[in-house]
Amino acid sequence: MTRRPFLGWFVSPAGLVALGLAAALAAVFQYSLRAYIPGSLDVGGFTLGNFADLLKPIYGSAFLQTVALCFETAVITLLLGYPLAYALVRTRNKALKSVILIIAVTPLFLGEVVRTYSWMIVLGNNGFINSVLMGLGLIQKPVQFMFTSFGVVVALVHVTLPVMVIMLAAALSHIDRDYEKAAESLGAGPIRAFLTVTLPLSMPGIIAGVTTAFAWTFSAFATPQLIGGGRVNTISTLVYQLGFASFNFPFAATLSVAGLALTLVVLALLKRVMRPLEKLGEH
C-alpha cells in the first residue's frame, strides 16, 4: 500500500465538521426525549410522550404534504431540467450553451430569502403574473398562487433546477453521441433513439438528480414558510413554529428527528424502486 502522508491532514477539517454535526444531532435527539414545560425554556425529564404525540392527525398530514411536495417538485424539476441538460450537452452553439448555463445556475447564487421574495412579487395577487393576465383580459380576478402548495412547488423547482441540470448534464455528457447515431442508422427515428438508448443510459443521472431534489425540498424552510404563509405546513415550517413561536423545543426536536428518519426511509425506498432502472443504464 502506498503511503499518503497528507491524507490525515486533508480529511481532518471534514472530520471536525462531522464531529460538530454529530454533537448537534445528539443534542437534538436528547431534546426529543425530554418533557415540555409550558411557559419555560427549560426542559423536563426523559419521556417518550413526544413521539406518541406525532400520531396526531395534524402531524401525519404535514408529513404526507411534505412528501407530496417533494415528489411534485422533484418530478417537475426533472421534466424541466432534462431538456435543458440535453441541450446544454448536445448543442454546438456556444451562445446557447451560455444562456442555458446562466438560466440553470443563477438560482444557486441568489440567497434563499431573496429568491423567495422575488417569487412572492411574481406570484402575488397584484404580482407580475396576475397583472399581465388581467391586463390582457384573460382573467377577471387574480388567480390565487400565494399561500398554495402550487406556489410553493413553483418556487422550490426554481431552487432544485440547477442541481438537477448539473447532475443530468454530467450523466448525459458521458453518453457517446455515436450511440444515438448507431440507433438512427439502424432505423430508429430521433424520438425512438432517445427513448431506447439515451434515456436508459442517462438513468444514473436521473436517479441522482431526483434523489437530491427530493432531499433538498424536504429540508427547505424559507420557501414553504413565506410562500405557503402558514397554509402549507411542512415538517420544516412546523419545527419552526413549535420551536420559535411556542418555544416547545422538545417537540420541535422530536419532529426534526422524525423528519430526518422519514427522509432516510423515503430515500432508501427511492433507491430500491430505482435500482432496476439504474441497471438499465449501466455502462
Binding site: 457517446d176 448507431a182 443510459l201
Partner: peptide, 20 residues
C-alpha cells in the same frame, strides 16, 4: 432523407454497442 430511413449499416470506430 434522414439517417434512419436510409437502410444503412454502420460499424463505428468505437463500435458504439448499446451498453445497456
Amino acid at each position: 432523407t434522414p439517417a434512419h430511413k436510409r437502410e444503412i449499416g454502420i460499424v463505428f470506430q468505437n463500435y458504439a454497442l448499446f451498453p445497456h
